[in-house]
């Protein structure tokens, strides 16, 4: 059990990093990575939502969609669960933990259409649809959490790189997004070094 969790953690955070090897969540990755602080804020919000969404969608899938033979509606069901969850988290944080809301609040609405969250939930469904319900819930939550940690790691590293890029003087047509994408490609190259790792 412990080794399984360790393997899951390493592969979700490093080897199959959500951004650098799966390309999920590129919009916030490119959009909110101008400064390391905001990148960290976005990352924390994603960790929060993705962990909860993994749990909620797993429950919805196992206890609503499967019993009623509605598996084919998973896309609609999951996106609605995620949207409702994000709305709920926003309201809850605003009332209960205002300091956390002030830190994460502006990033929360953006997460509904973040493909990393929907992607993680769908991957969970595909991976753990055959195992027992309790186990699939546990592993879904762990996968959601660690994948979001990998996302945060990637976006914070990238924000650090971009903060330095401000001082560079590239050719005019490379300014802005092209240079950011090429920098992301170079970081992805570093991350692809992990892909040879065999975790047996």
């Amino acid at each position: 059990m412990f080794t399984e969790i360790l393997v899951l953690m390493l592969s979700a955070v490093l080897i199959e990093n959500f951004i650098f090897s799966r390309f999920m969540g590129c919009c916030p990755f490119l959009g909110v990575s101008e400064k390391p602080d905001t990148a960290l804020g976005m990352g924390c919000a994603v960790i929060f939502v993705m962990t909860l969404a993994s749990a909620a969608c797993n429950l919805v899938y196992n206890f609503i969609l499967v019993p009623f033979n509605l598996e084919y509606l998973y896309t609609i069901a999951f996106i609605l669960v995620i949207a409702a969850l994000v709305q709920f988290i926003e309201m809850f944080l605003r009332k209960a933990v205002p300091s956390l809301y002030n830190a994460l609040g502006i990033y929360l609405p953006l997460i509904t259409t973040n493909c990393a969250v929907l992607g993680a939930v769908i991957l969970n469904m595909q991976k753990y649809s055959d195992v027992a319900k309790g186990e699939s819930l546990l592993f879904s939550v762990l996968f959601g959490f660690f994948a979001a940690v990998g996302f945060t790691l990637a976006i914070v590293i990238f924000a650090g790189v971009r903060a330095r890029m401000v001082y560079s003087d590239p050719p005019k047509s490379f300014r802005g997004m092209p240079l950011a994408l090429i920098a992301a490609g170079l970081i992805a190259m570093a991350f692809s070094g992990f892909s040879g790792t065999n975790l047996g």
Binding site: F20, S21, F23, P171, K172, S173, F174, R175, M177, P178, L179, A180, L181, I182, A184, G185, L186, A188, M189, F191, S192
Partner: peptide, 21 residues
């Protein structure tokens, strides 16, 4: 592989910006 995707897309966007300018 993923790195090539990022770099080629970046180069294409740069080319597009050049053509536009």
């Amino acid at each position: 592989l993923p790195p090539g995707g990022f770099i080629i897309l970046g180069s294409l966007i740069a080319l597009m910006q050049k053509l536009m300018s």
